[in-house]
Nucleic acid binder design. Structure first.
Length: 291
DNA sequence: CCCGGCGCCTGAGGGC
DNA sequence: TGCCCTCAGGCGCCGG
């Protein structure tokens, strides 16, 4: 489940490996992942020959800035991950040319492969096929309503405490749910929301209107802390996430709450609890995270 | 506006 | 061994 740190790790890896390469072909066995243009043949035709000038991230979207004013946007959703390497078709399946992590079972759900002009390939593995691919004119993408309404980037300097507090004060609801809203803050998902609330000692169901300024300050710092740690460790691979080399991230070693149900809280020793709301599980310490 | 719930998908893991 | 159920959850969308 790639969230901001996982997407950033992917972007960093892509940027290092595919800069200045041009797309020469695309293969897919699940063409409906391509949402724009809806027609796959048209998508392929428009993409071919475009050169990668930059790879960047907005919220959880991986964006390839291309030549001729185009951008290729990929959202990996739940189980998607992008890898760079070389694969070949054998017995009706794509196999990595060189044995190694790319051949791991987790990496084997290849549904889209982009072929580059140096023989390298960018492969999208996505077990659950939720990923979304869109080819835009960059200007249209940047001006699109869905892009404009994305919330601030929590790791940018412009994301000040004042801005964060102002946004939260406008939203009513349970803090964890509000944090995960991509229009409130970009890129925080289930894992990092639970982690940030643990560090800030705030109960995930605490309502935003009941948060003190002190709590908001702690939460603001905790968000930056856990996201930066996530990037530093190359992401979290509790589920299917892998980096561009097909390898798992190492954030798991510093997880304090997520998926630690019944294990001891590192701060007070009480067992971590799990509750469900908004169709999602939240993990927290019932002793030191206050409502 | 707020909230909940479903759809999109499929594999892992538990109960029986 | 195998079948059925639940769970995993980003995000758009719909409806009360």
């Amino acid at each position: 489940m790639p969230e901001l740190p996982e997407v950033q790790t992917t972007v960093n890896g892509l940027h290092a490996k595919v800069l200045n390469r041009a797309f020469v072909d695309v293969w897919s066995d699940w063409q409906k992942m391509v949402k724009r243009p809806r027609d796959f043949a048209q998508f392929k035709k428009e993409l071919e020959g475009k050169k990668i000038a930059r790879v960047w991230r907005r919220a959880k979207n991986v964006i390839f800035e291309l030549s001729e004013g185009y951008s290729l946007l990929i959202h990996m959703k739940m189980t998607g991950h992008l890898m760079v390497g070389e694969w070949q078709m054998a017995n009706g399946e794509w196999q990595p040319k060189v044995p190694g992590p790319l051949g791991d079972k987790v990496n084997g759900f290849l549904h889209v492969i982009f072929f580059l002009d140096n023989g390298d390939m960018i492969a999208l593995s996505d077990m659950r096929k939720f990923a979304k691919i869109e080819l835009w004119k960059t200007e249209e993408m940047l001006a699109s309503p869905e892009f404009l309404k994305i919330g601030p980037e929590p790791l940018e300097n412009s994301f000040t405490f004042e801005k964060f507090a102002a946004i939260i004060s406008k939203k009513r609801g349970k803090i964890k749910q509000v944090l995960m809203d991509p229009f409130v803050v970009a890129g925080i998902g289930n894992i990092y929301a639970s982690e940030a609330l643990w560090w800030a000692k705030i109960h995930p169901e605490k309502r935003t209107e009941n948060l003190s300024k002190k709590e908001l300050q702690l939460l603001y710092g905790a968000i930056k802390k856990v996201l930066n740690a996530g990037i530093e460790f190359g992401g979290e691979s509790f589920s299917d996430y892998r980096n561009v080399d097909g390898l798992p991230g190492k954030f798991g070693s510093s997880r304090q709450a997520y998926k630690r149900e019944k294990l001891e809280c590192a701060r007070c020793g009480a067992p971590i609890a799990r509750i469900m709301f908004a169709a999602r599980s939240a993990f927290y310490c019932p002793h030191c995270q206050k409502l």
